[in-house]
Amino acid sequence: MAGQQHIVVIGAGYAGLSAATRAGRRHRVTLIAPESRFLHRVREHETAAGRREHRPALDRVIRGRRVTHLRARVTGLDLTARKVLLDTGEAVPYDTLVYALGSRTAGRSVPGVAEHALTAERASEIRRRLAEAPAPGTVAVVGGGATGIELAAELAEAHPAWQVRIVAAGQVGGWFSAKGRGHVLRVFDRLGVRLHEHTEVTAVTADGLSTTDGAVPADVVAWAASMEPHPLAAEAGLTVDPAGRAVVDAYLRSVSHPEVYVIGDAAAVTVPGTGTLRMGCATAQPMGRYLGRRLARGTSGPFAFRYGVQCLSLGRGDGLVQLIHGDDSMRPGAVTGALARLTKAAIVNGVVLALR
């Protein structure tokens, strides 16, 4: 990796932007992404509830680096010719490709999702639907993971006249320790959030949800189910795992195309002693930082990672910091209340600072 390279980074999320700003200290980098502002995904529940958005301009983040932001959408990869194909008709050549297209909310195979539900990525539309409704009604949040929990709590606190329901195929927050899950349930009880656990959604209609436990009426459906990787990696011919995540080696290189690095939610990364990493900001940004430094310096050891904590905001004044082991398994202890909320806010703010 000695000498100057043209590095193309596709995707400007936590992983891609962190890699681009660091690699751009030495190499010429083209960052390809259609948006002009950073999508701070872990704060989208705040946007949905009508809070102020925290989305720095990409040009400000990459300022002072040898990074050019090309506003376009990637439509394909020519791995043989080493070119990225864009919706503008252009084909951008590269010496090294960093694939960081990330993930999207799953569930598009469920009938009616596309027509009647608003995925978590459409937070601004959720905010608008609530604001423009002629009268308060019912919001059904589908998904009992971190995104669904934060979204349900934020909406219930910001819009107390609305009835908020959370519909989950399993237990809401079921992976937390007993103390952690117990706190989530107490907060929901205080905010008036109704739980429909062990309930699978079979269809979304104009009137709400059809589920394995009967109909759940809703005026607005916010779809916050599990995440799935962008399909382009598999379509382009990169080796992927059964979930569609690109399989990489210890240095985050594609096992089938070593000139392509894959980071963030798009990568199936297994770290000795830690296991296969889950999707999320907590794993994506460390991958981006590692790879950006590796590309800039030309050498480094294999990627290493250990988990720290899992944290949630539960409205503006409450939260949960779940203590965990380095392999992401739960410890019994958890921090709750205002201290947990302040801790989560500090972590989230630090994420933006760490992009450079």
Score class of each variant (00 low, 15 high):
Ala296Ser: 08
Leu339Thr: 15
Asp241Ala: 04
Pro231Ser: 09
Ala338Tyr: 04
His257Thr: 12
Arg245Pro: 03
Ala246Ser: 14
Arg316Tyr: 11
Arg294Val: 06
Leu209Tyr: 04
Leu320Ala: 06
Gly264Leu: 04
Phe303Ile: 10
Gly308His: 01
Arg245Phe: 04
Gly308Leu: 07
Leu291Gln: 03
His230Ala: 12
Gly333Trp: 10
Asp213Pro: 02
Ala243Ser: 08
Ala225His: 00
Tyr290Ala: 01
Gly298Arg: 06
Ala250Thr: 13
Gly337Trp: 06
Gln322Cys: 06
Thr336Phe: 07
Ala340Asn: 14
Asp249Glu: 11
Ala296Leu: 05
Gly292Asp: 09
Ala304Phe: 10
Arg245Lys: 08
Ser313Trp: 06
Leu295Lys: 09
Met279Ala: 05
Ala334Pro: 11
His325Asn: 12
Arg341Tyr: 10
Tyr261Val: 07
Met330Thr: 06
Gly315Arg: 15
Ala236Asp: 09
Gly237Gln: 05
Leu252Arg: 10
Gly280Pro: 09
Gly214Thr: 07
Leu342Val: 07
Val240Lys: 08
Val269Pro: 02
Leu314Tyr: 15
Arg289Trp: 00
Ser329Gly: 09
Ser300Glu: 14
Leu314His: 08
Ala304Ser: 14
Gln322Val: 06
Leu291Lys: 05
Ala224Cys: 07
Arg289Val: 07
Val216Lys: 07
Arg293Pro: 00
Tyr261Cys: 09
Ile263Asn: 02
Gly288Lys: 02
Ser313Thr: 15
Asp249Val: 08
Ala206Lys: 08
Ile263Phe: 02
Asp327Tyr: 14
Leu238Gln: 12
Gly326Asp: 13
Arg297Trp: 13
Ala334Asp: 12
Leu238Arg: 15
Gln310Thr: 07
Gly208Pro: 13
Leu277Tyr: 01
Leu339Pro: 09
Met227Phe: 01
Thr274Tyr: 07
Val260Cys: 13
Ala246Leu: 08
His230Asp: 15
Gly315Leu: 15
Ser256Ala: 11
Thr239Ile: 12
Pro229Thr: 04
Cys281Ala: 12
Ser226Gln: 00
Leu320Ser: 13
Thr270Cys: 02
Gly273Phe: 04
Val269Glu: 00
Ala236Gly: 14
Val335Pro: 09
Ser329Gln: 10
Met227Gly: 00
Arg278His: 10
Thr270Met: 02
Leu323Arg: 04
Ser300Gln: 15
Arg289Cys: 01
Ala284Leu: 01
Arg331Pro: 04
Glu259Asp: 15
Pro286Tyr: 00
Cys311Met: 11
Leu295Thr: 03
Val248Lys: 12
Gly208Ile: 12
Cys281Arg: 08
Met227Pro: 00
Leu252Lys: 05
Asp207Ile: 01
Gln310Lys: 10
Gln285Trp: 03
Pro242Gly: 09
Ala236Thr: 06
Cys281Gln: 02
Asp213Ile: 02
